[in-house]
């Protein structure tokens, strides 16, 4: 059985496969990459490099976009 790790994605706890990359998460959640910004543990991530970022247990990912505001 594959080893699992726990991460937080936009405040929600998720259990994912060990050795998942940030790219896997983006793909799985159908995130439109051109319209978002991504933070990993409060550090901004270069969107071009997400294939090379392996996730670890307890990682906190924030994916944000623009919404209506004043």
């Amino acid at each position: 059985m594959k080893k699992k790790i726990k991460i937080k994605l936009n405040g929600k706890l998720k259990t994912i496969n060990n050795k998942s990359t940030l790219f896997n998460i983006v793909q799985k959640n159908k995130i439109p990459l051109a319209k978002v910004a991504i933070e990993l543990n409060q550090e901004i991530v270069d969107k071009k490099k997400i294939k090379n970022i392996n996730l670890k247990n307890n990682d906190k990912i924030e994916i944000v976009h623009f919404i209506g505001g004043g």
Binding site: N10, N29, K35, V64, H65, F66, G70
Partner: peptide, 29 residues
């Protein structure tokens, strides 16, 4: 136009996106 920065809705992926309605190439965000 002013816009806010907020979390992407992970659970409801069909929620409409601002950029689909207001083209940032035509209107300065």
């Amino acid at each position: 136009v002013t816009v806010a920065v907020r979390r992407v809705n992970i659970t409801d992926k069909k929620k409409p996106l601002l950029m689909d309605y207001i083209d940032p190439k035509k209107i300065t965000y």
